[in-house]
Design a protein around this nucleic acid. Structure first.
Length: 377
RNA sequence: GUGAGCGUAGCUCAGUUGGUUAGAGCACCAGGUUGUGGCCCUGGGGGUCGUGGGUUCAAUCCCCAUCGCUCACC
């Protein structure tokens, strides 16, 4: 198992501050993992990622790396850490989400999923065994099982069958994991993924099915796919009760800053989301006073930093007017500076959350901050 | 100078054998984006149809004049 060492628990909610160890270093929770699908956090180099943004762990993607550059190259490189020059922990998503997001390009079968590559149309078949093999080639510190992320809305029967499929696959994932070894001499963990759409009894069943298989830890999948926010929070709150207290709980693909704080309050420790990086590339920036759309004409002569309360490289050195100019001129520096800022904000958000949990005033702080950061400027 | 062609949104252009409120792409303005293609999606503001006159119930469209641009020839 992947042990979560708990430093502190909040008295007024389920938030906890902790840490876990991997062979590539320690991770302090709650934590946000920047998304680097193709072995790069888009627009941000690894030294900024580590030293400026203070990312402790990044996420990458089995499906994308399998298609390009492919496992042969990854193995020849000595694994993804060496290949991408990132010596801190890496978590890889299994490709299960692509079953959902590339739905026009796939066929779901009982023993796996057939994909058509979005790059060249070629056919590929993913099974639980195969995604474990690929993640061995990648060498990620935390591997994820192949699952099905059910669409939303999703009727009960579909969701029930989907949970059964995910549970069946989970067993095969676990067996493949136990029958294989790390290729590069460091320990790799495997997380199970709890599905069940919006149905509490299915979430409970999914959790119980997976717990029997004794994964290193567990994630909640299939949320933030279109359901109302309150329903998502309720399901997170419900599901974390079934997840072991002494292991890190991972809420996949979430989310907006307020989603992260609300989910920490409901017992989640790990998050990833494309939002800080994708929105940065689209000129949408997060600040302690709410979001701002950097292309807006009102910033053309605004020589303040993006966020006066932010200490990131971008805010220390550049103005809103300059960022807007870079975006309008379609200069690539815009993407870099905006991505650095948004990721710094997300990492600072979870760092402060951790500090407030340790200090014992997380719940009050969270409620205050959620209001301020939710404003649209 | 002569002849021909073209002037429609900021740009590139459709269009109407004369008929409701003149369109598109790009640009601009504003939203969206939750286990990532810098993609994509949604909405909006913009036009004296070069200018002036004529014909007609009705003209961006037909006629005349005029201004501008382009090409060919001298």
């Amino acid at each position: 198992m992947l042990k979560l060492n708990i430093d502190s628990k909040d008295k007024n909610c389920k938030a906890r501050a902790g840490s876990f160890e991997t062979d590539h270093g320690k991770v302090e929770t709650p934590i946000f993992m920047p998304v680097g699908t193709q072995g790069t956090v888009k627009a941000v180099n690894q030294s900024y990622l580590a030293d400026e943004i203070k990312a402790q762990i990044v996420l990458s993607n089995t499906y994308h790396l399998y298609l390009r550059p492919g496992t042969e190259i990854l193995e020849a490189a000595g694994g993804l850490h060496k290949f991408m020059n990132w010596q801190k922990p890496i978590l890889t998503d299994s490709g299960g989400y692509q079953v959902f997001s590339l739905s026009e390009l796939r066929k779901l079968k009982s023993d796996g999923v057939e994909f058509r590559s979005h790059l060249d149309g070629s056919k590929h078949f993913f099974t639980p065994e195969k995604v474990i093999d690929i993640q061995r080639s990648i060498g990620s510190d935390i591997m994820m099982v192949l699952d099905e992320c059910a669409p939303y809305p999703c009727d009960y029967d579909y969701a029930k069958n989907s949970v059964q499929l995910t549970s069946n696959w989970a067993k095969l994932n676990k067996e493949a994991f136990e029958n294989s070894e790390s290729l590069y001499g460091h320990k790799q963990f495997l997380f199970g993924i709890i599905q069940g759409s919006i149905y509490k009894d299915l979430r409970e069943k999914s959790a119980n099915d997976l717990l029997k298989l004794d994964f290193d830890s567990y994630a909640i999948g299939g949320l933030a796919v279109g359901e109302p926010m309150e329903q998502m929070y309720e399901l997170v709150d419900f599901t974390t009760d079934f997840m072991p207290d002494d292991r890190p709980r991972y809420l996949m693909g979430v989310g907006r800053p307020e989603n992260i704080l609300e989910s920490i309050a409901r017992g989640v420790d790990m998050f990833d989301c494309v939002m800080p990086t994708r929105n940065a590339r689209n000129a949408n920036l997060f600040t302690w006073n709410g979001t701002l759309s950097m292309r807006n004409a009102k910033y053309k002569d605004d020589f303040k930093p993006l966020d006066e309360r932010c200490n990131c490289y971008t805010c220390r050195n550049y103005t809103r007017a300059y960022l807007r100019h870079l975006f309008i001129a379609e200069e690539i520096l815009a993407l870099e500076l905006a991505s650095i800022h948004n990721l710094y904000f997300y990492l600072e958000l979870v760092t402060q959350a951790r500090r407030h949990i340790v200090d014992g005033d997380f719940f009050r702080w969270k409620n205050e901050i959620v209001n301020e950061i939710s404003i649209k400027n």
